[in-house]
Design a protein around this nucleic acid. Structure first.
Lengths: 102, 102
DNA sequence: TCGGGTAGTTACTTCAATGTGCGTACTTTT
DNA sequence: AAAAGTACGCACATTGAAGTAACTACCCGA
């Protein structure tokens, strides 16, 4: 799109209604699908799987399947690339906190 | 909304397709409507006015009308509150630049 | 066997953001 | 006199992100 605004590349990745929350949740370490759901109660399963798939495609999230024949077990974690966004996320968070309420 | 993710407050303001670009454009100082349009060639007049009005409502942008009976002259600039986002924007920009291309 | 947990998929719908195209009104420049 | 610049408003169309609801399929504990 010939933006010439590099900030857009970052916002294409953390933008949207749920991605920042997914990112924040995974910042603390790997999480299972249902753990992410509990951390973000209002997201539906469909939208959450959509977002996780997209973030995986973008190279921001790693999906590891530990399932056995007996047990389903999938874990999601941030990639190193995604961790590079941490300073930006922290800056956004602290701005958000300082503007706690009008 | 009950997000408990403060990052969302910031993204509600700089999120969206055009707002980050508007923000970046105004970071360098006050700009007239047509100057912003030239800086962001692909935005339509309608959408740009919409965004500027919304950012004004949110307290991020100041609109000052210098028009006389002879001349239309409107200038837009960032508020102090908006300038507080600069560290976050810089962090996002530098991440975007470091991920210049896949 | 009944309810709950795991991790999804599929089909369909809704809605807010964005885009298109027109008109207004007044000015300066050529 | 005509073209181009300034700064919009309004009605409508389109699109894509998100939401709803149902279904799959397997396992565990009471």
């Amino acid at each position: 799109m010939t933006t010439s605004f590099p900030v857009n590349r970052a916002l294409e990745i953390i933008g949207g209604k749920w991605r920042p929350q997914v990112y924040c949740t995974l910042q603390d370490g790997p999480r299972r699908f249902s753990e992410i759901q509990r951390a973000i109660p209002d997201v539906s399963r469909k939208v959450l799987t959509d977002q996780l798939r997209e973030l995986e495609q973008l190279g921001m999230v790693r999906r590891i399947d530990y399932s056995t024949e007996k047990q389903l077990h999938v874990e999601y974690s941030l990639t190193e690339e995604a961790r590079g966004l941490q300073p930006a996320m922290n800056a956004l968070c602290s701005w958000g906190e300082s503007h706690d309420e009008k």
